[in-house]
């Protein structure tokens, strides 16, 4: 089960001089319980792609199937789709509006028609998942710090208990510490909650260490869709797209060029260190 994307295209401002082809014949499958990184340069169509997945944008051509059903079909329940496929927009803190954090997080579950008690239960769970300090539950969302606001907004989507959670550039505009916090949080959620997560980003370093699979977009097309290690073998092509492999990949590549017979597939500093240590006999030190 999951989402099957079959040859979809999307045009903005169709039929005017400003027409933009944001998605150009994209096909992919999104199974249950996978951690996916969606990467691409700004304007490559990432946000457009994820918005088609929960039916916020209607594809110009092609089909999207959720659990085997066409989401543009007459009988299809879009509301159910939107609760199953949770989408956290870029700068999600701009959507906060309630008097206090907990009410804001309850907004989603309430829209699903749940009782106040059940909505509250889910909100508390979600806030716990994003590690929001308890003392802030009753504060105004506008009094929170940048990172806290963002976590509150993520909780707002999480409280709907989606089966697939999509986060559009969740680290945009955060400082390195805030970025690592959010990424760690998302990785933790993946382990705890057993759902599919799609992490949209324009930075390889952000996603490389966490995800099972990387989808690379460029000019509205899906260019690569594979395990991280395999995708990073295309360093040169990635660079032409304005993307870069993780920094550690470059170090390993350079070592290899200088004659050390290491594999250049390491994605994290730890993996790289282990790989180098395994070859330390070749080092003349």
């Amino acid at each position: 089960m999951g989402i099957k994307v079959d040859d979809i295209s999307f045009l903005y401002e169709r039929g005017t001089a400003m027409q933009v082809t944001a998605l150009d014949h994209v096909s992919a499958e999104i199974p249950d319980n996978q951690f996916i990184g969606l990467i691409g340069h700004t304007g490559s169509g990432k946000s457009t792609f994820v918005q088609t997945l929960n039916g916020l944008l209607k594809v110009t051509s092609g089909h999207i199937y959720y659990n085997g059903e066409d989401i543009d079909g007459d009988k299809f329940d879009k509301k159910k789709l939107r609760s199953d496929v949770g989408l956290v927009f870029q700068y999600p803190e701009h959507q906060l509006f309630e008097v206090d954090v907990i009410s804001d997080v309850m907004f989603g579950p309430r829209n699903l028609g749940l009782s106040d008690a059940e909505a509250k239960k889910r909100a508390l769970e979600a806030l716990e998942s994003v590690r929001m300090p308890k003392s802030l539950y009753k504060s105004s969302p506008f009094d929170l710090s940048g990172g806290q606001k963002r976590r509150a907004a993520i909780a707002g989507v999480l409280a709907m208990r989606p089966k697939i959670l999509i986060l559009d550039e969740p680290t945009a505009g955060l400082d390195p510490k805030g970025r690592d916090e959010i990424l760690g949080l998302i990785a933790g959620m993946k382990k705890e909650l057993n759902m599919t997560i799609i992490l949209v980003s324009h930075s390889m370093d952000d996603v490389a260490r966490y995800v099972d699979r990387i989808m690379v977009m460029g000019g509205g097309k899906l260019l690569y869709d594979d395990e991280p290690v395999k995708v990073f073998r295309h360093v040169t092509e990635l660079e032409e797209l304005g993307l870069a492999a993780p920094q550690i990949t470059y170090i390993m590549k350079l070592l290899k060029e200088r004659g050390l017979d290491v594999s250049s597939d390491a994605l994290t500093v730890e993996e790289a260190a282990a790989e180098i240590m395994a070859h330390r006999r070749e080092l003349h030190v």
Binding site: F89, H94, Q95, F107, N111, V157
Partner: peptide, 8 residues
């Protein structure tokens, strides 16, 4: 769109 995604 963000609020519709939250079921509004």
């Amino acid at each position: 769109k963000a609020q519709i995604a939250r079921g509004a």
